[in-house]
Design a protein around this nucleic acid. Structure first.
Lengths: 217, 217
DNA sequence: CGTATATCGATATATCTTTATCGATATAAT
DNA sequence: ATTATATCGATAAAGATATATCGATATACG
Protein backbone atom coordinates (compact mmCIF):
# COMPACT_ATOMS: atom_id res chain seq x y z
CA UNK A 1 0.00 0.00 0.00
CA UNK A 2 1.46 3.35 -1.06
CA UNK A 3 -0.19 5.97 1.05
CA UNK A 4 2.33 8.68 0.40
CA UNK A 5 1.44 11.39 -2.06
CA UNK A 6 -2.25 10.63 -2.24
CA UNK A 7 -4.10 13.70 -3.42
CA UNK A 8 -6.49 15.61 -1.22
CA UNK A 9 -9.20 15.13 -3.81
CA UNK A 10 -8.84 11.37 -3.75
CA UNK A 11 -8.85 11.41 0.02
CA UNK A 12 -12.10 13.32 0.05
CA UNK A 13 -13.77 10.91 -2.34
CA UNK A 14 -12.89 7.82 -0.33
CA UNK A 15 -15.65 8.32 2.27
CA UNK A 16 -18.17 8.48 -0.58
CA UNK A 17 -16.96 5.16 -1.96
CA UNK A 18 -17.14 3.68 1.50
CA UNK A 19 -20.66 4.94 2.07
CA UNK A 20 -21.79 3.46 -1.23
CA UNK A 21 -20.09 0.12 -0.64
CA UNK A 22 -21.83 -0.18 2.72
CA UNK A 23 -25.24 0.16 1.11
CA UNK A 24 -24.56 -3.00 -0.90
CA UNK A 25 -25.87 -6.32 0.32
CA UNK A 26 -23.10 -8.33 1.94
CA UNK A 27 -24.42 -11.65 0.74
CA UNK A 28 -25.41 -11.00 -2.84
CA UNK A 29 -22.83 -8.42 -3.89
CA UNK A 30 -19.56 -10.25 -3.39
CA UNK A 31 -17.64 -8.19 -5.88
CA UNK A 32 -18.03 -4.72 -7.32
CA UNK A 33 -16.44 -2.99 -10.30
CA UNK A 34 -15.10 0.54 -10.61
CA UNK A 35 -17.62 1.02 -13.40
CA UNK A 36 -20.52 0.27 -11.07
CA UNK A 37 -19.24 2.57 -8.34
CA UNK A 38 -18.63 5.34 -10.85
CA UNK A 39 -22.15 5.11 -12.20
CA UNK A 40 -23.72 5.17 -8.74
CA UNK A 41 -21.75 8.24 -7.69
CA UNK A 42 -21.70 10.10 -11.00
CA UNK A 43 -17.96 9.91 -11.37
CA UNK A 44 -15.62 8.90 -14.12
CA UNK A 45 -14.72 5.22 -13.98
CA UNK A 46 -11.02 5.82 -14.52
CA UNK A 47 -11.02 8.22 -11.62
CA UNK A 48 -12.60 5.64 -9.35
CA UNK A 49 -10.12 2.97 -10.50
CA UNK A 50 -7.19 5.26 -9.87
CA UNK A 51 -8.48 6.30 -6.46
CA UNK A 52 -8.96 2.69 -5.44
CA UNK A 53 -5.55 1.70 -6.77
CA UNK A 54 -3.90 4.11 -4.35
CA UNK A 55 -5.65 2.51 -1.39
CA UNK A 56 -6.25 -1.14 -1.98
CA UNK A 57 -5.04 -4.44 -3.30
CA UNK A 58 -5.45 -5.46 -6.92
CA UNK A 59 -8.76 -5.66 -8.66
CA UNK A 60 -9.36 -8.44 -11.15
CA UNK A 61 -10.29 -7.87 -14.79
CA UNK A 62 -13.90 -8.72 -15.65
CA UNK A 63 -14.62 -9.16 -11.91
CA UNK A 64 -13.73 -5.98 -10.06
CA UNK A 65 -12.95 -5.82 -6.36
CA UNK A 66 -14.06 -8.01 -3.47
CA UNK A 67 -16.58 -5.76 -1.73
CA UNK A 68 -15.83 -6.63 1.89
CA UNK A 69 -12.08 -6.48 1.34
CA UNK A 70 -12.43 -3.08 -0.25
CA UNK A 71 -14.49 -1.76 2.64
CA UNK A 72 -11.90 -2.96 5.14
CA UNK A 73 -9.03 -1.50 3.19
CA UNK A 74 -10.62 1.92 2.80
CA UNK A 75 -11.61 1.98 6.46
CA UNK A 76 -8.11 1.05 7.48
CA UNK A 77 -6.62 3.61 5.13
CA UNK A 78 -8.82 6.34 6.60
CA UNK A 79 -7.90 5.28 10.11
CA UNK A 80 -11.46 4.32 11.09
CA UNK A 81 -10.03 1.37 12.98
CA UNK A 82 -7.51 3.51 14.84
CA UNK A 83 -9.39 6.30 16.57
CA UNK A 84 -7.81 9.68 17.24
CA UNK A 85 -8.85 11.87 20.14
CA UNK A 86 -9.89 15.47 19.67
CA UNK A 87 -10.96 18.49 21.67
CA UNK A 88 -13.45 21.18 20.72
CA UNK A 89 -12.79 24.81 21.52
CA UNK A 90 -15.97 26.83 21.68
CA UNK A 91 -19.08 25.36 23.27
CA UNK A 92 -21.62 27.52 21.50
CA UNK A 93 -24.43 26.08 19.40
CA UNK A 94 -22.21 24.57 16.74
CA UNK A 95 -19.68 23.26 19.25
CA UNK A 96 -22.42 21.58 21.23
CA UNK A 97 -23.99 20.12 18.10
CA UNK A 98 -20.66 18.55 17.18
CA UNK A 99 -20.20 17.29 20.75
CA UNK A 100 -23.56 15.62 20.47
CA UNK A 101 -23.00 14.05 17.08
CA UNK A 102 -22.37 10.33 17.49
CA UNK A 103 -21.35 9.71 13.90
CA UNK A 104 -17.76 10.80 14.47
CA UNK A 105 -16.91 7.61 16.32
CA UNK A 106 -17.64 5.71 13.15
CA UNK A 107 -15.07 7.87 11.38
CA UNK A 108 -12.36 7.21 13.94
CA UNK A 109 -12.76 10.48 15.77
CA UNK A 110 -13.24 10.53 19.50
CA UNK A 111 -14.12 13.93 20.94
CA UNK A 112 -13.08 13.80 24.55
CA UNK A 113 -13.91 17.26 25.87
CA UNK A 114 -14.74 20.86 25.07
CA UNK A 115 -13.26 24.14 26.26
CA UNK A 116 -14.78 27.57 26.50
CA UNK A 117 -13.95 30.98 27.90
CA UNK A 118 -17.54 31.61 29.01
CA UNK A 119 -17.88 30.85 32.72
CA UNK A 120 -21.57 30.09 32.30
CA UNK A 121 -20.97 26.98 30.21
CA UNK A 122 -17.77 25.85 31.93
CA UNK A 123 -18.54 22.98 34.26
CA UNK A 124 -21.62 21.84 32.32
CA UNK A 125 -21.83 18.74 30.16
CA UNK A 126 -23.06 17.92 26.67
CA UNK A 127 -23.66 14.33 25.60
CA UNK A 128 -21.69 13.24 28.66
CA UNK A 129 -18.68 15.35 27.68
CA UNK A 130 -17.38 17.98 30.04
CA UNK A 131 -16.75 21.61 29.19
CA UNK A 132 -13.54 22.92 30.74
CA UNK A 133 -12.06 26.42 31.11
CA UNK A 134 -9.40 27.42 28.59
CA UNK A 135 -6.75 27.33 31.30
CA UNK A 136 -6.94 23.53 31.38
CA UNK A 137 -6.39 23.09 27.64
CA UNK A 138 -2.66 22.55 27.46
CA UNK A 139 -2.48 20.24 30.41
CA UNK A 140 -5.29 18.00 29.19
CA UNK A 141 -4.01 17.82 25.62
CA UNK A 142 -0.53 16.87 26.72
CA UNK A 143 -1.70 14.37 29.29
CA UNK A 144 -4.11 12.63 26.89
CA UNK A 145 -1.83 12.96 23.85
CA UNK A 146 -4.48 14.76 21.83
CA UNK A 147 -3.52 15.79 18.31
CA UNK A 148 -6.72 17.16 16.80
CA UNK A 149 -8.35 20.44 17.76
CA UNK A 150 -11.74 21.62 16.50
CA UNK A 151 -12.31 25.37 16.47
CA UNK A 152 -15.92 26.54 16.81
CA UNK A 153 -15.41 30.00 18.28
CA UNK A 154 -16.37 33.27 16.56
CA UNK A 155 -13.98 34.48 13.87
CA UNK A 156 -12.35 37.17 15.97
CA UNK A 157 -11.09 34.69 18.58
CA UNK A 158 -10.07 31.93 16.18
CA UNK A 159 -6.42 32.88 15.66
CA UNK A 160 -5.79 33.18 19.38
CA UNK A 161 -7.43 29.81 20.02
CA UNK A 162 -5.42 28.36 17.18
CA UNK A 163 -2.17 29.57 18.75
CA UNK A 164 -3.15 27.96 22.06
CA UNK A 165 -3.86 24.69 20.32
CA UNK A 166 -0.50 24.70 18.58
CA UNK A 167 1.17 25.44 21.89
CA UNK A 168 -0.69 22.50 23.40
CA UNK A 169 0.86 20.08 20.96
CA UNK A 170 -2.04 19.82 18.50
CA UNK A 171 -0.97 18.76 14.99
CA UNK A 172 -4.18 19.08 12.99
CA UNK A 173 -6.89 21.70 13.25
CA UNK A 174 -10.43 21.52 11.99
CA UNK A 175 -11.49 25.14 11.66
CA UNK A 176 -15.16 26.09 11.54
CA UNK A 177 -14.46 29.80 12.00
CA UNK A 178 -14.71 31.78 8.76
CA UNK A 179 -11.14 33.09 8.82
CA UNK A 180 -7.72 32.13 7.61
CA UNK A 181 -5.49 30.75 10.35
CA UNK A 182 -1.74 31.21 10.31
CA UNK A 183 0.12 28.19 11.67
CA UNK A 184 3.65 26.72 11.68
CA UNK A 185 4.51 24.61 8.68
CA UNK A 186 4.04 21.20 10.26
CA UNK A 187 0.45 21.91 11.37
CA UNK A 188 -2.50 21.14 9.10
CA UNK A 189 -5.57 23.35 8.99
CA UNK A 190 -8.69 21.93 7.39
CA UNK A 191 -11.25 24.68 6.89
CA UNK A 192 -14.93 23.94 7.08
CA UNK A 193 -15.93 27.36 5.89
CA UNK A 194 -19.66 27.73 5.52
CA UNK A 195 -19.22 31.09 3.82
CA UNK A 196 -17.20 29.42 1.08
CA UNK A 197 -19.84 26.79 0.53
CA UNK A 198 -22.54 29.41 0.45
CA UNK A 199 -20.54 31.36 -2.11
CA UNK A 200 -20.69 28.39 -4.45
CA UNK A 201 -24.41 27.91 -3.88
CA UNK A 202 -25.42 31.50 -4.35
CA UNK A 203 -23.28 31.97 -7.45
CA UNK A 204 -24.96 28.96 -9.01
CA UNK A 205 -28.32 30.53 -8.31
CA UNK A 206 -27.49 33.97 -9.63
CA UNK A 207 -26.11 32.38 -12.79
CA UNK A 208 -29.27 30.32 -13.24
CA UNK A 209 -31.36 33.43 -12.83
CA UNK A 210 -29.34 35.47 -15.29
CA UNK A 211 -29.62 32.64 -17.81
CA UNK A 212 -33.37 32.65 -17.31
CA UNK A 213 -33.51 36.40 -17.71
CA UNK A 214 -31.58 36.19 -20.95
CA UNK A 215 -33.93 33.59 -22.36
CA UNK A 216 -36.90 35.77 -21.61
CA UNK A 217 -35.45 39.19 -22.36
CA UNK B 1 -17.58 42.46 -14.36
CA UNK B 2 -17.26 39.02 -15.89
CA UNK B 3 -18.88 36.59 -13.53
CA UNK B 4 -19.23 33.73 -15.92
CA UNK B 5 -16.76 30.89 -15.74
CA UNK B 6 -15.31 31.82 -12.38
CA UNK B 7 -13.71 28.76 -10.84
CA UNK B 8 -15.06 27.11 -7.72
CA UNK B 9 -11.68 27.56 -6.07
CA UNK B 10 -11.71 31.31 -6.66
CA UNK B 11 -15.26 31.49 -5.39
CA UNK B 12 -14.28 29.75 -2.19
CA UNK B 13 -11.37 32.08 -1.57
CA UNK B 14 -13.45 35.24 -1.95
CA UNK B 15 -14.99 35.02 1.54
CA UNK B 16 -11.46 34.81 2.98
CA UNK B 17 -10.44 37.98 1.18
CA UNK B 18 -13.57 39.67 2.39
CA UNK B 19 -12.97 38.63 5.96
CA UNK B 20 -9.43 39.94 5.85
CA UNK B 21 -10.43 43.23 4.22
CA UNK B 22 -12.98 43.80 6.94
CA UNK B 23 -10.34 43.55 9.64
CA UNK B 24 -8.55 46.55 8.13
CA UNK B 25 -9.12 49.98 9.56
CA UNK B 26 -11.48 51.98 7.37
CA UNK B 27 -9.75 55.26 8.02
CA UNK B 28 -6.06 54.43 7.80
CA UNK B 29 -6.07 51.68 5.17
CA UNK B 30 -7.56 53.40 2.15
CA UNK B 31 -5.95 51.09 -0.36
CA UNK B 32 -4.61 47.56 -0.24
CA UNK B 33 -2.41 45.57 -2.62
CA UNK B 34 -2.72 41.98 -3.75
CA UNK B 35 0.74 41.44 -2.28
CA UNK B 36 -0.46 42.47 1.17
CA UNK B 37 -3.55 40.28 1.03
CA UNK B 38 -1.51 37.34 -0.20
CA UNK B 39 0.95 37.65 2.67
CA UNK B 40 -1.79 37.88 5.27
CA UNK B 41 -3.56 34.78 3.97
CA UNK B 42 -0.53 32.73 2.96
CA UNK B 43 -1.43 32.72 -0.69
CA UNK B 44 0.42 33.47 -3.89
CA UNK B 45 0.14 37.10 -4.92
CA UNK B 46 -0.63 36.28 -8.55
CA UNK B 47 -3.45 34.06 -7.43
CA UNK B 48 -4.94 36.85 -5.37
CA UNK B 49 -4.59 39.31 -8.24
CA UNK B 50 -6.28 36.94 -10.65
CA UNK B 51 -9.08 36.18 -8.22
CA UNK B 52 -9.74 39.85 -7.67
CA UNK B 53 -9.59 40.61 -11.37
CA UNK B 54 -12.51 38.27 -11.97
CA UNK B 55 -14.65 40.13 -9.46
CA UNK B 56 -13.75 43.74 -9.30
CA UNK B 57 -12.76 46.88 -11.09
CA UNK B 58 -9.19 47.74 -11.95
CA UNK B 59 -6.42 48.00 -9.43
CA UNK B 60 -3.78 50.64 -9.88
CA UNK B 61 -0.05 49.91 -10.19
CA UNK B 62 1.99 50.86 -7.15
CA UNK B 63 -1.25 51.54 -5.24
CA UNK B 64 -3.42 48.47 -5.29
CA UNK B 65 -7.18 48.48 -4.78
CA UNK B 66 -9.44 50.89 -2.91
CA UNK B 67 -10.33 48.87 0.18
CA UNK B 68 -13.94 49.93 0.61
CA UNK B 69 -14.68 49.57 -3.08
CA UNK B 70 -13.21 46.09 -3.08
CA UNK B 71 -15.30 45.05 -0.08
CA UNK B 72 -18.48 46.27 -1.76
CA UNK B 73 -17.66 44.57 -5.03
CA UNK B 74 -16.90 41.20 -3.43
CA UNK B 75 -20.03 41.41 -1.28
CA UNK B 76 -22.11 42.23 -4.28
CA UNK B 77 -20.52 39.46 -6.30
CA UNK B 78 -21.28 36.95 -3.57
CA UNK B 79 -24.83 38.17 -3.33
CA UNK B 80 -24.56 39.36 0.29
CA UNK B 81 -26.67 42.35 -0.62
CA UNK B 82 -29.34 40.22 -2.25
CA UNK B 83 -30.47 37.62 0.27
CA UNK B 84 -31.77 34.23 -0.79
CA UNK B 85 -34.25 32.26 1.29
CA UNK B 86 -33.61 28.69 2.33
CA UNK B 87 -35.26 25.83 4.18
CA UNK B 88 -33.65 23.20 6.37
CA UNK B 89 -34.77 19.59 6.21
CA UNK B 90 -33.94 17.69 9.38
CA UNK B 91 -34.35 19.40 12.75
CA UNK B 92 -31.90 17.23 14.68
CA UNK B 93 -28.95 18.68 16.56
CA UNK B 94 -27.12 19.92 13.48
CA UNK B 95 -30.27 21.28 11.86
CA UNK B 96 -31.14 23.19 15.01
CA UNK B 97 -27.62 24.52 15.36
CA UNK B 98 -27.81 25.89 11.82
CA UNK B 99 -31.27 27.34 12.49
CA UNK B 100 -29.79 29.13 15.47
CA UNK B 101 -26.73 30.48 13.73
CA UNK B 102 -27.16 34.18 13.08
CA UNK B 103 -24.10 34.56 10.87
CA UNK B 104 -25.88 33.35 7.74
CA UNK B 105 -27.77 36.60 7.36
CA UNK B 106 -24.47 38.35 6.88
CA UNK B 107 -23.75 35.99 3.99
CA UNK B 108 -27.04 36.69 2.26
CA UNK B 109 -28.78 33.53 3.44
CA UNK B 110 -32.12 33.74 5.14
CA UNK B 111 -33.33 30.48 6.64
CA UNK B 112 -37.08 30.78 6.85
CA UNK B 113 -38.19 27.44 8.27
CA UNK B 114 -37.32 23.84 9.00
CA UNK B 115 -39.06 20.57 8.18
CA UNK B 116 -38.92 17.21 9.89
CA UNK B 117 -40.65 13.85 9.76
CA UNK B 118 -40.54 13.44 13.54
CA UNK B 119 -43.88 14.44 15.05
CA UNK B 120 -42.23 15.33 18.34
CA UNK B 121 -40.32 18.28 16.92
CA UNK B 122 -42.97 19.37 14.40
CA UNK B 123 -44.78 22.40 15.74
CA UNK B 124 -41.89 23.54 17.93
CA UNK B 125 -39.66 26.54 17.23
CA UNK B 126 -35.92 27.19 17.18
CA UNK B 127 -34.58 30.72 17.18
CA UNK B 128 -38.05 31.92 16.27
CA UNK B 129 -38.23 29.64 13.24
CA UNK B 130 -41.00 27.10 12.96
CA UNK B 131 -40.55 23.41 12.29
CA UNK B 132 -43.14 22.05 9.86
CA UNK B 133 -44.11 18.54 8.79
CA UNK B 134 -42.67 17.27 5.51
CA UNK B 135 -46.10 17.40 3.91
CA UNK B 136 -45.95 21.21 3.90
CA UNK B 137 -42.60 21.42 2.12
CA UNK B 138 -43.66 21.79 -1.48
CA UNK B 139 -46.40 24.26 -0.81
CA UNK B 140 -44.23 26.54 1.30
CA UNK B 141 -41.27 26.45 -1.10
CA UNK B 142 -43.41 27.33 -4.06
CA UNK B 143 -45.35 29.99 -2.25
CA UNK B 144 -42.23 31.69 -0.88
CA UNK B 145 -40.14 31.12 -4.00
CA UNK B 146 -37.41 29.31 -2.08
CA UNK B 147 -34.47 28.03 -4.09
CA UNK B 148 -32.04 26.71 -1.50
CA UNK B 149 -32.52 23.55 0.53
CA UNK B 150 -30.25 22.44 3.37
CA UNK B 151 -30.20 18.72 4.13
CA UNK B 152 -29.36 17.71 7.70
CA UNK B 153 -31.07 14.34 7.90
CA UNK B 154 -29.27 11.00 8.44
CA UNK B 155 -27.57 9.54 5.38
CA UNK B 156 -30.21 6.92 4.67
CA UNK B 157 -32.98 9.50 4.20
CA UNK B 158 -30.95 12.07 2.31
CA UNK B 159 -31.70 10.95 -1.24
CA UNK B 160 -35.43 10.83 -0.59
CA UNK B 161 -35.36 14.29 0.97
CA UNK B 162 -33.28 15.51 -1.94
CA UNK B 163 -35.89 14.26 -4.41
CA UNK B 164 -38.62 16.09 -2.48
CA UNK B 165 -36.60 19.29 -2.60
CA UNK B 166 -36.10 19.03 -6.32
CA UNK B 167 -39.80 18.42 -6.76
CA UNK B 168 -40.49 21.52 -4.67
CA UNK B 169 -38.59 23.71 -7.09
CA UNK B 170 -35.30 23.96 -5.18
CA UNK B 171 -32.31 24.78 -7.42
CA UNK B 172 -29.36 24.45 -5.06
CA UNK B 173 -28.82 21.97 -2.25
CA UNK B 174 -26.42 22.20 0.66
CA UNK B 175 -25.93 18.63 1.75
CA UNK B 176 -24.62 17.82 5.22
CA UNK B 177 -25.45 14.11 4.93
CA UNK B 178 -22.40 11.96 4.21
CA UNK B 179 -23.70 10.51 0.95
CA UNK B 180 -23.68 11.27 -2.74
CA UNK B 181 -26.93 12.71 -4.01
CA UNK B 182 -28.17 12.11 -7.51
CA UNK B 183 -29.94 15.13 -9.01
CA UNK B 184 -31.07 16.45 -12.39
CA UNK B 185 -28.44 18.35 -14.33
CA UNK B 186 -29.62 21.86 -13.56
CA UNK B 187 -29.52 21.35 -9.78
CA UNK B 188 -26.35 22.10 -7.80
CA UNK B 189 -25.32 20.02 -4.81
CA UNK B 190 -22.70 21.45 -2.48
CA UNK B 191 -21.50 18.79 -0.09
CA UNK B 192 -20.40 19.68 3.40
CA UNK B 193 -19.08 16.25 4.13
CA UNK B 194 -17.49 16.02 7.54
CA UNK B 195 -16.18 12.55 6.78
CA UNK B 196 -14.20 13.96 3.86
CA UNK B 197 -12.68 16.66 6.00
CA UNK B 198 -11.82 14.16 8.67
CA UNK B 199 -10.17 11.97 6.08
CA UNK B 200 -7.78 14.80 5.25
CA UNK B 201 -7.06 15.48 8.92
CA UNK B 202 -6.43 11.92 9.92
CA UNK B 203 -4.25 11.18 6.91
CA UNK B 204 -2.11 14.15 7.79
CA UNK B 205 -1.69 12.77 11.29
CA UNK B 206 -0.86 9.23 10.28
CA UNK B 207 1.69 10.60 7.83
CA UNK B 208 3.26 12.77 10.54
CA UNK B 209 3.46 9.75 12.83
CA UNK B 210 5.04 7.50 10.24
CA UNK B 211 7.60 10.21 9.48
CA UNK B 212 8.39 10.40 13.19
CA UNK B 213 8.67 6.64 13.44
CA UNK B 214 11.09 6.57 10.51
CA UNK B 215 13.31 9.20 12.08
CA UNK B 216 13.52 7.19 15.26
CA UNK B 217 13.54 3.68 13.79
C1' DC C 1 -11.94 -24.95 -27.21
C1' DG C 2 -12.36 -20.45 -29.36
C1' DT C 3 -14.67 -16.00 -29.24
C1' DA C 4 -17.04 -12.15 -27.10
C1' DT C 5 -17.14 -9.12 -23.28
C1' DA C 6 -16.38 -6.75 -18.93
C1' DT C 7 -12.98 -5.12 -16.51
C1' DC C 8 -8.38 -4.11 -15.02
C1' DG C 9 -3.81 -1.41 -14.98
C1' DA C 10 -0.85 1.58 -17.52
C1' DT C 11 0.05 5.16 -20.50
C1' DA C 12 -1.24 9.25 -23.02
C1' DT C 13 -3.96 13.34 -23.60
C1' DA C 14 -6.72 17.10 -22.14
C1' DT C 15 -8.25 20.34 -18.88
C1' DC C 16 -7.95 23.03 -14.94
C1' DT C 17 -5.24 25.50 -11.36
C1' DT C 18 -1.32 27.59 -9.63
C1' DT C 19 2.97 29.95 -10.02
C1' DA C 20 6.55 32.60 -12.54
C1' DT C 21 7.93 36.15 -15.65
C1' DC C 22 7.70 40.51 -18.01
C1' DG C 23 6.51 45.04 -19.76
C1' DA C 24 3.71 49.02 -18.31
C1' DT C 25 2.48 52.54 -14.99
C1' DA C 26 1.85 55.37 -10.85
C1' DT C 27 4.12 57.34 -7.08
C1' DA C 28 8.17 58.70 -4.28
C1' DA C 29 12.83 60.06 -3.80
C1' DT C 30 16.92 62.15 -5.46
C1' DA D 1 13.51 65.77 -14.44
C1' DT D 2 15.38 61.42 -13.79
C1' DT D 3 15.62 57.20 -11.39
C1' DA D 4 14.02 53.65 -8.21
C1' DT D 5 10.32 50.88 -6.67
C1' DA D 6 5.87 48.77 -5.80
C1' DT D 7 2.38 47.20 -8.09
C1' DC D 8 -0.63 46.08 -11.85
C1' DG D 9 -2.39 43.15 -15.93
C1' DA D 10 -1.18 39.84 -19.36
C1' DT D 11 1.09 36.00 -20.98
C1' DA D 12 3.85 31.87 -20.35
C1' DA D 13 5.32 27.84 -17.81
C1' DA D 14 4.65 24.39 -14.45
C1' DG D 15 2.02 21.42 -11.76
C1' DA D 16 -2.09 18.90 -10.56
C1' DT D 17 -6.25 16.57 -11.75
C1' DA D 18 -9.45 14.39 -14.70
C1' DT D 19 -10.53 11.81 -18.84
C1' DA D 20 -9.62 8.88 -22.87
C1' DT D 21 -7.34 5.08 -25.01
C1' DC D 22 -5.25 0.60 -25.33
C1' DG D 23 -3.35 -3.94 -24.48
C1' DA D 24 -3.92 -7.68 -21.12
C1' DT D 25 -6.74 -10.92 -18.61
C1' DA D 26 -10.49 -13.43 -16.44
C1' DT D 27 -14.93 -15.26 -17.12
C1' DA D 28 -19.09 -16.63 -19.81
C1' DC D 29 -21.10 -18.57 -23.70
C1' DG D 30 -21.55 -20.90 -27.85
Amino acid sequence: MIDQGISKQTLQRLPFYLGYLKTLDKVTVETVSATTIAEALNLNQVQVRKDLASVCSLGRPKIGYVTQELICEIEHFLGYDNAESAVIIGAGKLGKALLGYRGFEEYGLNIVAAFDADENVVGTEENGKKIFPMSKLKNLCERMKIHIGIITVPAEYAQRVCDSLVESGILAIWNFAPVHLTVPEHILVQNENMASSLAVLSKHLSQKFSEEAQKIG
